[in-house]
């Protein structure tokens, strides 16, 4: 979208534990949006993450990623972060650097465009090498 793209993933966004990786992301739209208006694709070290196993944590609650589009009442405040939990058998360790490719799509629910009145899609691809915390 623009210059604020770099804030979607902060430098300390990636963390590791015995179960896998956690990736914290933030929306950079000026107004909070519910999770149902967001979608993402994620690659770690060039490998696409298996969506079926991923969970998203928001407002202290955890949901399967595949339920995300249903979560119309879970708002991600503009200063808050949601965490993507990525289960892995042999996750990178703290101090490892991982290449992260994170495509965040925001479907703006009040800006409906085109003949079919689809929500405006504000998509951003963020690519960063992040140090596992």
């Amino acid at each position: 979208m623009g210059p604020l793209d770099k804030y979607i993933l902060r430098e300390d966004a990636l963390s590791s534990n015995a179960q896998g990786l956690g990736l914290r992301f933030q929306s950079h739209w000026y107004r909070a949006l519910p999770l149902s208006c967001m979608d993402f694709n994620l690659k770690v070290n060039g490998i696409p993450v298996d969506e079926e196993k991923v969970e998203v944590e928001i407002n202290g609650k955890r949901f399967p990623k595949q339920k995300m589009l249903e979560l119309k009442d879970e708002w991600l405040f503009i200063l808050d972060q949601a965490t993507v939990h990525i289960p892995m058998q042999n996750p990178p360790k703290k101090g490892d650097i991982c290449s992260i490719e994170f495509k965040l799509d925001l479907y703006i629910p009040y800006i409906l465009i085109g003949p079919d009145q689809h929500p405006l899609l504000a998509g951003t691809l963020v690519t960063k090498n992040l140090l596992c915390q």
């Binding site: 107004r31 589009l69 629910p109 009040y110």
Partner: peptide, 12 residues
Amino acid sequence: MFLDYNKKKGHY
């Protein structure tokens, strides 16, 4: 105030 007409894919 905003009206989020399309909060859920395919549902207005």
